[in-house]
Nucleic acid binder design. Structure first.
Length: 432
DNA sequence: TCTGGGGTCCTAGGACCC
DNA sequence: TCTGGGGTCCTAGGACCC
């Protein structure tokens, strides 16, 4: 077993906890946060879970229950959650510079330099500091590998006596817990792998750890083999302290209603392309193609179904919103079909790119070269305006947003204020 | 009669994650 | 009426090359 101490810390019911930080009345009551479009529940406090509200439960199915039980319901507020996430990571970095941000609410920390007997105490200090400085409650899992740290974190959440910290670098804890935790809790074991493992008679994490890795590779690919080594304490997944460059980027949204008109669809993909450009420019990336898709909903069982996807090539890589919008509209123009009766009722559309490269490194086109000398400053000016006055303060006329009603745009009917990032939405405190 | 062997690249689809 | 969005990695199979 290695002597590394990989540590996974994450926020408990993170989005709900962010809401609680700014509204003390939410303490001790059930809280849930809904997905985009107020579609389904994606974060639940323990009180909400106790009411039987499942992850991913559609809002229209749980609305009555939430009303009768007094559940506090919020639309997702990613501006707030992203800012709170940055705050927790700033606290982690006070403890060690060796931090890998894994997701909006989870980070791996390398605490290998801490003496073994001090690790749990340091972890408790970390939790208390994060709680005091950001208001976010957390749990901490420690292990010799990332997979064991994830498992330790799961145990820390499930076993109240541990007081939020579980250390699997401790051999006694390791022996105690692995034969008591179901294999489906292991990071990387999903539904399909679980079915295969059950057929092999695997029940607990210890059962999986003790399998011969080579035959497992046949059934679960190299991923399964790695998991076994990781459970044995042999690290196969390094800490990634420098974030890898992103490989693809997508902006996709369900419509708040259904879309049957071409103009509306074009407006939606133009808006998505606008957002795509912002994301690419923020990271200095470019793309030489834009894929566009739109489709009806399989939930609309009676209506006709149609699913469309096409890729529009560009002469050279770009992140210019005007070019991306034109490409997205071209994708619709190329694939739009006159509506049958009854019409296709489109439920979702998106723009997707893969194979991103830093724009400065991309080759220039011989024919059809884009005007980068003009595009760069123009985009920079637009981004600066939108940063200062809020997203979509300035949008290209070609997006066609001004003319028609925005039936398609995403719903956030129960969103809390952007307490920490918008001066006009600052919380107010009274002292008596 | 005997019908190679090894490599790369690309794509689609599956699986999994938060 | 109403069912999220955005990623990564892996494999198999086909095309193509020498």
């Amino acid at each position: 077993m290695s002597d590394r101490a990989i540590t996974l810390i994450d926020g408990n019911s993170f989005y709900c906890s962010c809401e609680r930080v700014f509204d003390p009345k939410l303490a001790g009551v059930p809280v849930i946060v809904l997905s985009n479009n107020d579609g389904c529940a994606i974060a639940r406090t323990s009180e909400a879970k106790a009411l039987g509200i499942k992850m991913g439960a559609p809002w229209f199915q749980i609305r009555d229950l939430c009303r009768s039980e007094g559940v506090r319901v919020f639309s997702s507020n990613y501006t707030l959650y992203g800012d709170m996430s940055a705050r927790t990571n700033a606290v982690y970095r006070d403890f060690t510079p060796r931090v890998e941000i894994y997701s909006i609410d989870e980070s791996f920390l390398d605490l290998s330099d801490i003496r073994e007997r001090d690790r749990v105490e340091i972890a408790r200090d970390l939790r208390a500091t994060v709680r005091a400085w950001t208001g976010i409650p957390t749990c901490v899992g420690i292990g010799p590998t990332k997979t064991l740290a994830k498992l330790a974190n799961h145990i820390a959440k499930k076993v109240p006596e541990l007081d939020g910290v579980c250390d699997l670098t401790n051999p006694r804890a390791y022996d105690h817990w692995l034969c008591r935790i179901a294999v489906e809790e292991v990071w990387g074991i999903g539904r399909a792998s679980l079915a295969k493992l059950e057929a092999m008679g695997v029940d607990t994490v210890a059962d999986l750890r003790d399998l011969d890795p080579r035959p497992v590779r046949k059934a679960l690919s190299v991923v399964g083999e790695r998991i076994i080594h990781e459970l044995r304490g042999l690290s196969c997944l390094p800490l990634e302290l420098v974030p890898a460059r992103r490989k693809g980027c997508a902006v996709t949204r369900s419509f708040s209603g259904r879309v049957t008109e071409r103009a509306m669809l074009e407006q939606a993909v133009a808006a998505h392309a606008t957002r795509l450009g912002e994301k690419l420019r923020r990271e200095g990336l470019g793309t030489n193609h834009v894929s566009v898709f739109y489709h009806t909903s399989t939930h609309d069982r009676d209506g006709p179904q149609r699913s469309v996807s096409t890729t529009v090539s560009l002469p050279e890589a770009t992140n210019d919103t005007l070019v991306l919008i034109a490409a997205a509209r071209a994708g619709v123009a190329r694939t739009w079909r006159a509506q049958p009766d009854p019409p296709w009722r489109y439920s979702k559309a998106g723009v997707v790119t893969v194979d991103l490269l830093p724009l400065a490194q991309t080759p220039r086109a011989l024919i059809g070269q884009l005007d980068r000398a003009r595009s760069g400053p123009l985009m920079a000016a637009m981004d600066a305006c939108n940063l200062r006055w809020g997203r979509a303060s300035v949008v290209p006329g070609t997006a066609g947003l001004a003319s028609s009603p925005k039936d398609w745009s995403t719903k956030f009917e129960m969103r809390s204020p952007r307490y920490t990032t918008q001066l006009t939405e600052l919380p107010t405190a009274w002292a008596f």
